[in-house]
Design a protein around this nucleic acid. Structure first.
Lengths: 254, 254
DNA sequence: AGACCAAATATGGTCAGACCATACATCCTG
DNA sequence: CAGGATGTATGGTCTGACCATATTTGGTCT
């Protein structure tokens, strides 16, 4: 029958997927950005000709992906607020897939190594002074890098003052996050944050295993100095050495 | 009343979040992995003492994150099947945040550069023969790398035969995806796939702009050869040269 | 006995309607 | 004019009811 054939080719798009597509179109068409609001759930349901539950599922997906944040009450414009939290989705993603044994800790740590090295080299390299293209302020990234390196110094001092491994790791995360921010790439920052959140416990174990944090701090200072000096090669090398120290080759199972 | 006080401190966890947490607990506790099934929606709702709509929203989140796939019909065990599609979530994430102007194309492309370079160096480096640790077959990754390099060669041939930019890019994606797979890191592969999907159109423009694909193919061959020779440095250098050619510095707005 | 087809059944997908708690707007009162 | 009571729209949730589909089951025909 034609029914069967129809079903085959239709690929059965579900209602909430349709809603998702429409909302995405709307964002692109109206040029909506962070801070703007979507219509209320009931209104959207009526506009799109679907039930409210379908709209809700679509909004839940968008919330999961860090695109909207639900806002109750009665605003002048009502509905969900467009936001930007790409990190939360990545964190959830890693946590769940690690739980499912779809990803191994080794893979996550290796990825982290890759990012750190790249970010360090990138942060040390002054922006190539792109004359064409973006209208955005050329000094903006430079300022961002400056505050980021300042935060790195603060983190180093905080690690010196740390009394236990957990506290040390907390500031260590801040240090490496600042490193990522110094690269000026928001996607990298988001991924970095998610990775560190995922391996937080593992990092504490690593610090405990090492016992002495003096070597790590030497590395941190070396990284920080290399970036301030604008020596990309030295920065990358310093990071490589640092991570080799923290996570020596074989992935311990303990 | 205690009701008001309770509300304040509760930080209002929503029902579907509770369901999410419970399902995650269950996965960890029962050691569920890919292929296993969750109870049906109605059954879950009853077990957890919530409405079916809340269960559905939780499952929708899990589906978005690539953890479950809905399965209709009446199986011996019923309900959603645990899967592993970390890529789809990443793809959606990038697409939406690019649409929201939260991420710039430049950031995405830079990230892609980072991954490609790392993957090439990694693929060229033979596994350091870790004597301890994982029980998994030591030859498994080697085999994966071998088939990946073979796919890279196929992709190069296919690009030679390509008649238009779109087709060329299609096989180019296959080539670079195989490169990522050769690194043996599934997280990297997932991110790579999402990145390529996000910049697919942009890549076609780049090819059209270049006009001649001969240089790109030379690069591809150089990368492939370096990996087969196990020369990590040459592989990384080849990738860097390749991407510098494809995306010359300034981000064109066209 | 074996192959094949039809009813039974459980699933996810969807909608409609109702209720709650909250947050904002309004208006009324002091 | 200030401040609190009231109204209203919002998201959050539950219930109950359908639909289309996919598997099972059981019967029927060969």
């Amino acid at each position: 029958m034609t029914t069967e054939e129809r079903r085959r080719t239709d690929a059965r798009p579900r209602a909430f997927e349709e809603v998702l597509a429409r909302i995405e179109e709307r964002i692109a068409a109206d040029g909506l950005t962070v801070g703007d609001r979507l219509p209320g759930e009931r209104q959207l349901a009526e506009q799109l000709g679907v039930g409210r539950s379908s709209v809700r599922e679509a909004l839940r997906v968008l919330e999961t992906l860090g695109v909207v944040t639900p806002q109750a009450g009665r605003g002048p414009d009502a509905g969900a607020v467009l936001t930007s939290r790409p990190g939360s989705a990545l964190t959830d993603l890693l946590r769940l897939h690690l739980g499912l044994a779809t990803l191994s800790m080794r893979e996550v740590i290796d990825t982290r190594l890759m990012i750190e090295q790249w970010a360090a080299a990138r942060a040390a390299t002054p922006p190539p002074a792109v004359s064409t293209g973006t209208v955005s302020t050329p000094t903006a990234t430079a300022t961002a890098t400056a505050t980021a390196t300042a935060r790195m110094a603060e983190a180093i001092a905080a690690m010196d003052a740390a009394r236990d491994p957990a506290e040390f790791v907390e500031h260590d995360i801040a240090f490496h996050l600042a490193l990522a921010e110094a690269s000026g790439n928001r996607l990298i920052v988001a991924v970095m944050r998610a990775l560190r959140d995922a391996v937080r416990r593992y990092a504490v174990d690593a610090v405990v295993r090492l016992g002495d944090t003096g070597g790590l701090q030497d590395d941190h200072r070396r990284i920080h100095r290399a970036i301030e000096d604008g020596d990309a090669g030295a920065a990358a090398a310093a990071v490589a050495g640092h991570l080799a120290r923290a996570y020596p080759e074989s992935g311990p199972d303990s």
